[in-house]
Amino acid sequence: MHAFFLYIPRHTEVLTVENATHLIACHECDLVLRIPTVATGQSVRCQRCGALLLRKRKNSLDRTLAFSSAGLILFFLANAFPFLSFQMEAQIRQTTLITGIRELYAQDLQLLALLVLLTTVIVPFVQLAGMLYVLVPVRLNRNAPKLMESFRLIQRLRPWSMMEVFMLGILVSMVKLAQTAKIIPGLALYAFMALIFLMAAAIASLDPHTVWEKWKERP
């Protein structure tokens, strides 16, 4: 049974409303709704505004953990190996994921370089590592310092992880340069593409509600 409780002033005392009625307020329109029993694979939407309130996923924790760990490995591959090579007549230039960021920095666009670094490297890494940091203890019914703060942080950071937008940028650049030079994709590019799918899968299989519930039930 997943109970939704109304908390009364002191957080140690839990007040159930109408025999543990499951209530939730829609985060987009503030409507208070009773939560129906949700079957695995189903989602609940707000009756009034259509916002996605919660979803139940099969083996949510295990799947998200698997996708995130695999993603972390690919993250290191994507950053360690050559990304794209540019060949024009006899000259070849090999780049890694952060070459462009260094170049922007050298051209006196430090803030722009920082933004690109944050959105394509740092935030995705924090998301992947943070997912493991939060979900491993939750899965094992253990605690870890700042566990829920970390979970809140990774959820808030989600819009700032823009790897799939960067991938579109790569495709545009490759087509743009195709007429003047030869572009050779490197190992890191394939790792990066796979990483995008793993990240999307990790987020799609994550069911935050389960994490919060498990957190509350821990000993």
């Binding site: 540019f86 024009m88 462009g100 170049e103 959105t119 937008v165 940028g169 340069l177």
Partner: peptide
């Protein structure tokens, strides 16, 4: 977030097309 695509194209071009006065 999809508007960032142009910024990323610039980042990638700056990284790849860097052969001095040649290109």
């Amino acid at each position: 977030r999809w508007s960032m695509v142009d910024i990323y194209v610039v980042t990638i071009l700056v990284a790849l097309v860097n052969l001095g006065s040649f290109a």
